[in-house]
Amino acid sequence: MLRQWLYALSEPVIAAIDLMALVLIAGATVYTFVTVIALVLSGRARDGHRRRVLWLGYARWLVAGLTFQLAADIIESSIAPSWEAIGQLGAVAVIRTFLNYFLERDVVEIRERDVAFRHPAEGAHKD
């Protein structure tokens, strides 16, 4: 009886968390698409810094969405562990780990470029 109650409770929770991930990813995608179109139409599409900041922001939202999906997958695999659920959980975890690694690397690179651009003397002496 407890197991049935647990299944009944977990299904809407998993669906709600998946919906949250969908809203995050879809919203970020629409925002990024509209912003890219605006950059192109305004002639500022060649501004590498602006593009880079836009893509980094988009990547952050994707990571957030993947984190929500990972949470839903964790709940699902703990309630009804199957090889398919475990495989999906592993795939999402690996993708999220790689995205986080490259996102953090890009954030550091942009910060260093900003410092070098704002204070050229400080950026030149940095080892």
Rank of each mutant, 00 (worst) to 15 (best):
M20G: 15
I37Y: 06
D127E: 10
L6M: 13
W55C: 06
G43S: 05
A85Y: 05
T35Q: 10
L89Y: 02
R50K: 15
E76K: 07
R60M: 10
T32N: 13
G48K: 09
L56P: 00
H49K: 15
D127C: 09
V94W: 07
E109P: 04
S42A: 12
S42D: 12
L62I: 03
E76N: 09
H119F: 15
E76P: 02
A26R: 05
V115W: 05
A91K: 07
L66S: 04
S10G: 09
G65C: 03
Y7P: 03
V115I: 11
H49T: 14
E84H: 12
A93G: 05
S78C: 15
R52H: 14
A28I: 02
D106N: 03
V107F: 08
E104K: 09
Q69Y: 08
V108I: 11
F102W: 11
A8W: 10
A85N: 10
Y101K: 07
D127K: 12
N100E: 13
G27M: 01
R3H: 15
L66H: 03
I74E: 04
I110P: 03
A85G: 08
S42I: 05
L2R: 11
A38C: 11
A72R: 00
D47A: 06
L2N: 13
V92R: 04
Q4D: 11
I79C: 08
S10N: 09
I37T: 07
N100T: 11
V13P: 00
F68Q: 06
V40G: 08
A21C: 02
L9R: 11
Y31L: 15
N100P: 10
H49L: 15
E104W: 12
V40A: 12
R50D: 13
R3S: 14
R46P: 07
A124C: 07
V30S: 08
E122T: 09
A64V: 08
D127I: 09
I74W: 05
